[in-house]
Amino acid sequence: MITKHSIEPVRVNHGLFQFPEQVDHIKLAVIERHHLTNQLGLGIVKGLGLKSGAIAMTVAHNSHNLIIAGTTDQDMLMAA
């Protein structure tokens, strides 16, 4: 599978991303966990198919940082 770059509008309320189930956009966080830099990357991923909850993993080629995708901050925290 080849990942393609796209720019799409997202729903925001008071500066915060809103999870639109019908569009399949969910939150994504990458947390650096090896050098104590406190680096955090945030974004939105499309096409994962997650309708509720969150998933997390540390197996990511070359970095093995903590990657979390989820529908709510609370679910993402629990997965982390």
Rank of each mutant, 00 (worst) to 15 (best):
H5R: 12
T58A: 03
E32R: 02
T37W: 01
L28N: 01
I55L: 12
S63P: 01
N38R: 08
G53M: 08
N38S: 07
Q18R: 10
S52M: 10
G70S: 07
D24I: 13
K46D: 06
M78A: 09
F17T: 02
H5S: 11
I44P: 05
G49H: 07
H34E: 03
D73K: 11
G43F: 09
H34C: 01
N38A: 07
A56N: 08
G70Q: 01
Q22R: 12
G47N: 05
L16R: 15
M76W: 09
Q39K: 04
V10I: 15
G41N: 02
I26Q: 05
I44G: 06
K51G: 11
H5I: 14
A60Y: 05
F19C: 04
L66G: 05
N13P: 00
T37R: 03
S6I: 05
V45D: 00
H5K: 14
I55T: 06
E21I: 14
E32I: 00
L28T: 00
H64S: 14
K51W: 09
G47T: 07
V45E: 01
V30T: 08
Q74W: 03
L50G: 04
D75Y: 00
G15L: 08
L66V: 12
I44T: 12
R11Y: 01
D75T: 04
K4L: 15
V30S: 05
Q39F: 03
I31K: 04
R11L: 07
A80W: 03
T71A: 01
L42D: 01
H14G: 02
L77H: 15
G43Q: 04
I31E: 00
H61N: 12
S63A: 14
G15H: 14
F19H: 15
H5P: 06
E8A: 08
E21H: 10
K51L: 14
V23S: 14
P20K: 08
A79W: 00
G15D: 07
S63W: 10
I55M: 07
G70P: 00
K46W: 10
I26L: 14
L28H: 00
V12P: 00
L28C: 02
M78W: 04
I7L: 11
L36D: 13
H35T: 03
H61T: 09
K27E: 01
G43T: 05
S6W: 01
